[in-house]
Computed example of a mutant assay.
Amino acid sequence: MYKPFTYIFDPFKVIKENKLEFFIWFVFTILAGQLGILANIIIRYFSHSMSVSQAIYLDSASGSFYTYAIAVAASALGPLFANFIKNKKPEFTSLKIVSIIIVMFFLILSGIIYAAVQIKSLTASGVPMGANLTLDLPQFTIYVLSIFIGLYTYCLLKISSPDYEHLEDSFYEIDDATVRDVVKESKSKNDDGSGIAI
């Protein structure tokens, strides 16, 4: 039976398959990407006696979270394209195509919003005492979405590798089964009865 949500979220199964590899990827791709923001918070807290919420607000006001979101999405798009082009076996095509389209639109949207934030950026270098410190909700949403996109593309690319062949059945039964059958049929040779292989 066709279960679209199961199909969409199946790539996350690779996380359980190799927790160490996922941990290494997560630390160096997701956490290490936050070092600029974390450094700002630590420096502002210890050097300028600024509260953590004020420090985060300043990063939000300057668009730091948008910058990170754009970097993560861009780094996910390259491997997706490379995998799609170099992979001889046309597997997981619909998921990869849809993922590429979503990431491209996400990048364009994030870039436009970031440019708008920069044009309208605050001229004040500090945060006035007693100011209402509200997190920029669209920026935070895009920031969280970028982490999800990075995670999803990691899993999607991993599930195509030989190490995870046992997870492929759920994908094949939905849309890759057709592609796989066509490829198999094109490779098989049939005799037309007169000794000519078709």
Score class of each variant (00 low, 15 high):
A115D: 04
F148R: 01
K89G: 00
I112Q: 03
T134N: 09
T141W: 12
L135R: 03
Y152F: 07
A124S: 14
P128M: 05
I85L: 15
V144S: 04
I101A: 13
L107P: 06
S125Q: 12
S121P: 00
P90G: 02
A131L: 07
S94E: 06
T93C: 02
L145C: 06
I113K: 07
L133P: 01
L80I: 04
K96G: 05
S110E: 08
S99T: 15
V127G: 04
V144D: 01
K96D: 07
T153R: 08
S121E: 08
I142C: 11
M129C: 00
P138H: 11
L80C: 03
A124Q: 13
I85F: 15
G111M: 06
F106N: 05
A124L: 11
I97N: 02
M104E: 06
L156E: 08
P128Q: 10
I142W: 01
N83K: 09
Y152L: 03
Y114G: 00
K88V: 10
I147Q: 07
K120L: 04
I108W: 12
L77K: 11
Y154N: 09
L107K: 06
V103T: 09
V103K: 00
I119F: 11
L151T: 15
P79N: 12
I142V: 14
T141N: 11
Y143A: 00
L137M: 15
T93M: 08
S146F: 00
G150H: 05
Y152W: 01
M129E: 07
I108E: 08
K88S: 13
I119T: 14
Q139F: 10
L133T: 04
F92H: 11
Y143F: 14
E91H: 07
I97K: 06
L133C: 01
L135E: 10
Y143P: 02
I112W: 04
L122G: 08
Y114W: 15
I142R: 05
L122T: 08
F106W: 03
L77D: 06
P79G: 13
I100F: 12
I102L: 14
L135I: 15
T141V: 15
Y143L: 01
L156I: 06
F84Y: 14
A82L: 12
V127K: 07
I119M: 13
